[in-house]
Nucleic acid binder design. Sequence first.
DNA 1: GTGATTTTTTCACAGTTTTGACATATTTTC
DNA 2: GAAAATATGTCAAAACTGTGAAAAAATCAC
Lengths: 224, 224
Amino acid sequence: MDKLKILVVDDESRMRKLVRDFLVKSGYEVLEAEDGARAVDIFFTQKDIALVVLDIMMPKMDGWQVCREIRSHSKVPIIMLTAKSDERDELQGFQLGVDEYISKPFSPKILVARIEAILRRTNQLGQEEILTCAGIKVDKSAHQVWVDDTPIELSYKEFELLVYFIENKGIALSREKILNNVWNYDYFGDARTIDTHVKKLRSKLGNRGDLIKTIWGMGYKLEE
Amino acid sequence: MDKLKILVVDDESRMRKLVRDFLVKSGYEVLEAEDGARAVDIFFTQKDIALVVLDIMMPKMDGWQVCREIRSHSKVPIIMLTAKSDERDELQGFQLGVDEYISKPFSPKILVARIEAILRRTNQLGQEEILTCAGIKVDKSAHQVWVDDTPIELSYKEFELLVYFIENKGIALSREKILNNVWNYDYFGDARTIDTHVKKLRSKLGNRGDLIKTIWGMGYKLEE
DNA sequence: GTGATTTTTTCACAGTTTTGACATATTTTC
DNA sequence: GAAAATATGTCAAAACTGTGAAAAAATCAC
């Protein structure tokens, strides 16, 4: 997946640089605008901006105005930056559809954390998580497994178990650890039940089944 | 249906009045803008403008610029007015997605005729958001569903559920997630009600019904 | 408003899948 | 080879889903 684009609007270049550096370091593509008019212009020519970070105090067109313009036809998440923590402003912001409100001075880490939270909430952040190991492919979100590109059917527990294995591939896992992570914490049954599930998993994985190694006297391990 | 709204953009008030009078007589509602910036502003605050008549030669922001701004996120039909019949301009206009091109001086009747033609061609409906998945087609705004191009009737909840599925096709959805997204957030009823709706949805989708897969112990998924 | 109709929700039961336990077989280690 | 640990087949219990019917709620027609 491509990097997500974030538009940073602030008249102070020092502030833009600060935010940009942190965002770039966090893996985003950053577009900058030094005033409101420019911001609106960039937003409407660039079609796939994932989020807007918007300063309120700007010459010419202020943040509220930019927000209104953008909101009038886009639901893109908007984070407002403000110098003073004015509650009335905050209210106005939320009415305009501002998603977050961060008052200066702020720690860039906080900004990044808020951004990630919003992107996660709006489902724009890396959902396409596909785990692989040798010939085994697991799409967690689709709940789908392939062995050498042939889809296979796994039960709920088998799937959970496989995900746990593949997320810890190459690591020896004790039965106790597996129980604590794949089974509910309140499960007090036989630890040997894992054997049964490993058995079924191995058989469903076909000729990739032997990737699950037995660590004698200890537990299991998914070969990397 | 309400009168269709047409936005007329020209810096000459004489010209605007001329066009407006004819359009009003033809049964349209007319909005006027005397410059490009104003035009963009009006266009984005008014959400249901059916067509834009746009003069090219204007101070501040010219017609091309307005066209670009509007086109960057709307497919509304645009008719350009120009004083000189410059072929190169025309080319540029069509590349920008201009629908018609009328050179001044023009007869108002011609303008109205062209407008009617375009509106007929575009079915007087600007943009229709149509979701698809395999043989299933959903027109969200028209609240209409087709299965293999045969229209089918769905109740409100069934429709909402299908939209949620299709907007998340290929993703396994837990009952909890479905409840939180399709039902109101404060719904605390039986999660099994989803099963009932899935059942009805499956049956109404006919032979496409089995695109909705059961993820055992987890929820449902619409096959991509 | 009233009564009829449609939609939504609940519920119970039947049918299915999964799960975990157990007994037995096999493998590993010493 | 014996002891200890794991693999496997079987199976009943548990968990879950599909379904039809009925109750409740919302909507419509008058």
